[in-house]
Design a protein around this nucleic acid. Structure first.
Lengths: 187, 187
DNA sequence: TTATTAACTAAGCATTTGCTTAGAAATAAA
DNA sequence: TTTATTTCTAAGCAAATGCTTAGTTAATAA
């Protein structure tokens, strides 16, 4: 009845995701996406509506990729040890060459104007909340103290991993390891 | 002999700085700078060569502005207490409304491509190193332990304050306070 | 006053941006 | 084969980007 698509949507999104991850949202042009995804602009707009559409799908792709280490944390069942492992896993996950691309989500929070792009911003908040709940869950495993204390520690850990997302772009491995080890030393 | 400038360079740079701080480098256009600085594009290019020139001067302006709280830390002479106060001072400094603009330097690290803009990147590294040395100095004041331990703590603190720079854009005051208090609890 | 020099205004430059469209090529049901 | 439908290519659109330039205005040394 009609012509077939000559590309696989999830395959080309995977490529787009890496481009956004490396360069950020604004500095990734539709021309760059065209080249990286290997398809024409028409096809991009036909499949994903617009640039933001490509990005939202890329975010989904990113989330499913990082789900591996999130699942590992969820299955760990060993409290702070598991969270610490998650920190190291995250570093390895975002590594590219000697430095890191950081976290796609964090990068975007930092780039996109808070009030300018509410659709994207909402996605990011949900993602952060999700991670935090994983931390809370594991903290409860070996910390029988009051909920307020758990909450405080979770907030602290969120701050640490956000920091790591930037630090990993600038600092060397020894410095990053220092940060992680200190974070969990007296937690 | 010739006409006088109708604007003060440091005055208009102060305005440019706030624009960059709020919006980031790329998302601040020369047209926006024109409006905010209140001078024509010709004057911008005559005084500062190009957009990057305006930004570099803005960075200087930012640094001299934040020098107030850096000097306070340097004069504190009370070790970790002074550093902690610096964290709170930084939060107040970067505040705009209920949320924060973060740190102009950190924002730029996050935005600008590491290898794309080496001139700017160098500026940023120097700034970070400067802050770290202040931390080291104060840490030594009440921590007589080995240099390796001091270094580790300084790296940890750098990670924390970088985290704070992002966190402050997303999290509420209670969450930020949690992070700071936990950071210094067992330091 | 006059000549010189610098700072102003405003228009315009080439390039890049996100997105659209006209028309050719391919697929498969009728 | 014919016809309907969709995807493809490639050209082009308006708007925005960083930056320049032609020409006017103002200030001061001669």
């Amino acid at each position: 009845m009609a012509r077939k698509k000559q590309y696989d949507e999830s395959e080309v999104i995977e490529k787009a995701m890496h481009l956004f991850w490396r360069n950020g949202y604004e500095r990734t042009s539709v021309r760059m996406l065209e080249k990286e995804m290997g398809i024409n602009q028409f096809s991009i707009y036909a499949s994903f509506k617009n640039k933001q559409g490509v990005f939202l799908k890329s975010l989904k792709s990113y989330k499913s990729k990082i789900k591996t280490i999130k699942d590992k944390l969820e299955a760990s069942n060993n409290g702070k040890v598991g969270i610490k492992q998650y920190f190291y896993d995250f570093l390895a996950f975002s590594k590219e060459g000697s430095l890191s691309k950081g976290c796609l989500v964090t990068n975007t929070v930092n780039e996109v104007n808070t009030d300018a792009d509410p659709t994207i911003m909402k996605e990011l908040e949900l993602f952060a909340e999700d991670i935090k709940q994983l931390f809370v869950r594991n903290l409860k495993q070996d910390d029988k103290s009051d909920p307020a204390s758990i909450e405080q520690k979770a907030n602290f850990l969120m701050n640490s991993i956000l920091g790591l997302s930037i630090s990993s772009k600038v600092f060397n491995e020894k410095q990053l390891e220092d940060s992680i080890e200190m974070t969990f030393l007296n937690l």
